[in-house]
């Protein structure tokens, strides 16, 4: 893939992260600051409410996309540092491959957690 495409995706992921991050923080932060919808923080992270949210397809899809975007953004940043400090050496290339493998594993594990929670909530 062209380097410019990877960089453009990195920039788009940064913009998306602002949106997802803001939503995440405001959603839970609003509870912390007792801003409507009026629940307290402890209520909001209570098992019942988490279970209720896990039923929502919107939350499930949002967190999978959020995870993908955050992982891509972080991985690209670390890859840039590796490329810079290893000047394209074999060690650097191996490090980038290992990094990509870790990111993919983290994404699979994260998706598993989110999707299984959703299925359990819907099923149960």
């Amino acid at each position: 893939m062209r380097e410019s495409t990877l960089w453009l995706a990195f920039m788009i992921s940064a913009i998306l992260l602002i949106g997802f991050g803001a939503y995440h923080i405001l959603y839970f932060g609003s509870a912390m600051l007792s801003i409507p919808p009026g629940q307290t923080y402890h209520e909001k992270i209570s098992y019942e409410l988490v279970h209720e949210r896990a039923k929502s397809l919107f939350f499930t899809v949002m967190y999978v996309v959020f995870l993908a975007v955050a992982l891509y953004h972080a991985t690209y940043g670390i890859r840039s540092s590796i490329l810079e400090f290893t000047s394209g050496s074999r060690k650097g290339k191996v490090a980038v491959l290992v990094l990509a493998a870790i990111a993919i594993l983290a994404f699979i594990y994260g998706c598993y957690a989110v999707i299984v929670t959703h299925l359990m909530a819907v099923g149960g």
């Binding site: 062209r2 380097e3 410019s4």
Partner: peptide, 9 residues
């Protein structure tokens, strides 16, 4: 220039 060691670094 559109290379891992080009513009984007």
């Amino acid at each position: 220039v559109d290379d891992p060691h080009g513009l984007w670094r």
